[in-house]
């Protein structure tokens, strides 16, 4: 059997007549004696013959023309897809340095625009400090807020700490300790408002509305009331958003820092009645009366 295997391995060279004469002689001798190997060699020869006799496949007649048009056709017209495909290659029309320079330019422009963006909509650091340093941070009452507010605290711990630190050390001048019970007020709202201290919003796309939270059975009426009083306070509306829940609104208002007290007073005049605070006490004394504008977000929440 080993002899058969050895001869089988020599089929190729035996067929091509490339064996040394001695080996060739031995192999052919074995083929004469072994029927099985002889049969296998016959098939081997047939296979090689079949392979070499495979007909030559002719290329299409226009092969040369196709190739010439492929090789020498003019450059394809400018296409955006082609442009972007070759954006970072060392390709003909946009080498890598140009691409890199463009990226740097876009980045710089982005920073410039970001730094010069209007700041009264989204409070910047200075606006925050104004708000923080003034006693217009009266709404530091116990957070009896909603789950949303607690979520906000959790996700914005840094902002919370910024606020909580001064609050815990410095006494709040304002008496707008407004963990207030809603009490009906015949003057304005059908029921009272409850104003609670909260956190400043931190993201632009979500007006948190946690600076002030006003709970009212008539959100629309409360909102309209605030809007009406703004001109008198030399303030203006900077943002308005309908919240996720039904009858939930957020107003962003820009008012002079020394007008914060008036705003809360007006609110109370329009229906907010503080249990633990008198009207006078509810009027916060601004720590700075420099007239800097502060941005407040008032979250109106419907309460039955």
């Amino acid at each position: 059997m080993k002899e058969c295997e050895r001869v089988n391995n020599l089929f190729g060279e035996l067929h091509d007549r490339m064996l040394e004469s001695e080996t060739d002689k031995v192999a052919r001798e074995h083929l004469r004696e072994c029927i099985k190997c002889r049969e296998e060699f016959k098939w081997y020869g047939f296979t090689v013959q079949a392979l070499t006799n495979l007909e030559k496949v002719a290329p299409p007649e226009d092969f040369m023309a196709q190739l010439n048009s492929r090789l020498y056709s003019p450059a394809p017209s400018f296409a955006f897809s082609h442009f972007f495909k070759n954006f970072f290659s060392s390709a003909p029309f946009l080498p890598i340095p140009v691409g890199a320079a463009a990226l740097v330019f876009v980045t710089v422009m982005g920073f410039v625009l970001y730094n010069h963006a209007p700041t009264d909509v989204w409070p910047t650091g200075s606006a925050l400090s104004t708000l923080q340093s003034s006693s217009t941070r009266p709404v530091a009452g116990p957070i009896s807020g909603t789950g949303d507010l607690r979520d906000m605290r959790a996700t914005n711990m840094q902002v919370a700490r910024q606020f909580e630190a001064p609050l815990s050390t410095a006494p709040v001048k304002s008496s707008v300790q407004i963990p207030l019970q809603s009490v009906s007020n015949p003057k304005s709202f059908d029921s009272g408002l409850r104003i609670m201290g909260g956190l400043l919003p931190t993201t632009a796309d979500t007006i948190g509305g946690d600076n002030l939270t006003v709970e009212s059975p008539s959100v629309e009426a409360a909102v309209e009331s605030v809007k009406r009083m703004l001109p008198n306070l030399q303030g203006r509306l900077v943002a308005e958003k309908t919240g996720g829940a039904i009858r939930e609104r957020v107003l962003g208002v820009s008012i002079p820092s020394n007008a914060y007290g008036n705003l809360t007073t007006e609110l109370i005049n329009h229906g907010a009645v503080a249990i633990a605070a008198t009207k006078e006490a509810a009027t916060p004394a601004p720590s700075k009366s420099d007239g800097n504008n502060v941005v407040l977000y008032i979250h109106f929440v419907h309460t039955p």
Partner: peptide, 16 residues
């Protein structure tokens, strides 16, 4: 050579 031999053997078996 050895690769050619193996390849031919495979083709041979298919033909057979």
């Amino acid at each position: 050579k050895s690769r050619l031999h193996r390849a031919r053997m495979v083709v041979k078996e298919k033909l057979k």
